[in-house]
Amino acid sequence: MKDHYSLQIYSSTDNLPKEWDHLASKNIFLSKDYLNILEKAAPINMICHFIGIFKEEQLVGISLSQFINLTNVNSLGDRDHCFKTMVKNFLFKKLISNVLIIGNNMLTGQNCYSFSNTISTKEGLIQLNNATQELRDLFKKRKIKIHLTVFKDFLIPDSKKFKMDEFKRYYHFNTQPNMIFNIKESWHSIDDYIADLNKKYRDQYKRARKKAECIEKKKLSLSEITQYHAKINELYLNVAENAPFNTFYLCENHFEVFKEKLHDNFLFYGYFLEDELIGFNTLIKNGQDIDTYFLGYNHKHQREKMLYLNMLYDMIGYSIKKKYKRIIFARTALEIKSSVGAIPIEMNGLIQHENYFLNLLMAKSFAYFEPKTEWIERNPFK
């Protein structure tokens, strides 16, 4: 007899079934606590839903969807005001402003779903595809038309699991790689890491550390994050508004809610120069991985003190000391992350436009809108 599957779309974590966290046990980014952060402190142009897949009465799959409205976001950044950018922004808002993402647009990596061993990956993905139609119908009732539907991010072998009729209209795209730093078992401290660097990159480490000798690094508590609330937001926007591509901006209380909900699984480090907060970075503990999260800094001090590079070294030192296996450095700043030892891992996604004819042009249009980054991969080790 054919198994009977059903879907439930939740808009509040209060309604999630009690078994939810059992399926999320290997990924904090699908846990109730994390999803509650999105519920309370998602970007203002984002609406999140939580997807439960049931086999008969049993919860066998969980996932996350994010609706993003690009209308009020300067998606292409502030650095280029030429006519071509104006055209791109116009087309963005007219043709692809309403985006439904299955997965998490705020992270890099496979944080899309978790299935139990009682459902095949193929059947789970079919059910998620069914969920996209339910979500489109839900938004249609709110008079919101979904333009694009996206599944993200998947390793190349995993993306092949989508090769079935249900996904034949989707275009498989490849964006900037996920930068992964693998921690060697032989490393027990930052000194072991430094010893494995070749001379050029040992000198880079020493130079960066010398530049930052006058900077004090401090792990901030919830009350301290709240105390520096305005400055933190200013430093975050200094970085975010200069990014080549944006689909959202964090709301001002995002880091406070994060710390309140995840406690010591969320680490917030402030960098101070003469008692002034000049930068910060954030880390999330996720099993044997450390995921880097958002950061911010003063551009003047970043240049003078090599602040960003020092943050990367601090993340490496912490992760080695605490015996993590990997650091998920995510996208952006590919070359500098490569210079400290991170390697690029290609990730795939799937995308389709609701308009049949526009969807036929997806390959060309995606290449037009996707920012291209030229960079040189480094190998800092002996």
Rank of each mutant, 00 (worst) to 15 (best):
E374Y: 06
A41M: 12
I336F: 05
L273T: 00
K55R: 14
K231M: 14
K32C: 08
K184Y: 11
Y313E: 09
G109R: 11
S159V: 02
T332E: 15
T175H: 08
T282D: 12
R207V: 05
E274T: 01
T282C: 12
R207Y: 08
A230H: 13
L38R: 02
G124I: 03
N242G: 14
A208W: 01
N281K: 06
Q176F: 10
T108C: 04
E374S: 14
E234Q: 02
L197R: 06
S12K: 15
N198F: 06
N242Q: 13
E370H: 03
E134A: 07
K93L: 14
L277V: 11
Q302V: 02
I101W: 00
T332Q: 13
Q133P: 00
G349D: 10
Y271V: 01
Y297N: 01
I278C: 02
L358S: 04
I190L: 15
I62D: 08
S120M: 10
E185K: 01
R378Q: 15
M86F: 10
L358K: 04
L35N: 12
E260C: 01
M315N: 14
N178H: 07
A363K: 13
E213M: 07
H353M: 14
K200S: 12
K140N: 11
H147F: 08
L91A: 05
Q227M: 09
L35Q: 09
H263I: 15
E19P: 00
H254T: 09
Q204C: 06
G124A: 01
S75V: 06
G287H: 06
F162W: 07
F54V: 05
P244F: 15
N74F: 08
T121G: 09
N198R: 13
G317F: 03
I327D: 14
E56R: 04
H49Q: 15
D291C: 03
K285A: 04
D158Y: 05
I316H: 12
A208I: 08
F381K: 11
K372F: 03
N36A: 09
D196E: 15
D291T: 03
